[in-house]
Structure formats: structure tokens, C-alpha cells
Amino acid sequence: MIATVVDTKELWETVVAAFVAGVGVTASFSFVILGAARFAGLRRADRPLAAGAFGALAVVALIVALAAITLGMIAMLSK
């Protein structure tokens, strides 16, 4: 009965979008911190290759997090 009154599609989209956005941004930013921390440690240990890989992870994760936030804002502004 409730399904006939409530727009379950909208509600479901809200749940999925909020979950993906909230968890996704937190996970991406955690990778930024992991990458940055390991980059600093490995650089001090004079392991440039591994440090570079973790540095790249930090940069990519930061781009993913910022892109997710930007896309979310664009979606809100465009409706």
C-alpha cells in the first residue's frame, strides 16, 4: 500500500546516491591520506619508486574525491 503512495524510485535513488557519495568520498580521502603518509615515509627511506607509486595514489584519490563532490554539486545546480 505504501509503495503506491510513495515514489519508491526516488527514495531508492536517494538511498543509493547518498550511500555511494558519503562512503565513496570518505574512502577516496582515506586513500589520499594513506598515499601521502606512505609517500613521505618511503621518500625518507630513499625508495623513490615506491614513494612515487604512493604519491600517484594520493593524487588520483584526491582527484576522485574532488570530482565526486564537483559532480554532486553540478547535479544539484542543474535540476
Binding site: T14, A18, F19, A27, F29, S30, I33, A37
Partner: peptide
Amino acid sequence: MLAFVVGVVGINLAYGIAGRERPGTVSRGF
């Protein structure tokens, strides 16, 4: 309830991914 679930999953992922790094670095980063 959704915010609660997102909070639980988010913090577990955050600790799982970055929790083993130096506390000072992790704290500053977040």
C-alpha cells in the same frame, strides 16, 4: 538511519585504509 549506516561504513573504511599510518599524519590529514 541512512546517515547512521553511511557513518558506520565510512569510518570502518577510513580506519581500514589509513588507520595503520602514523596517528599524527592521519589526524592532520582528516
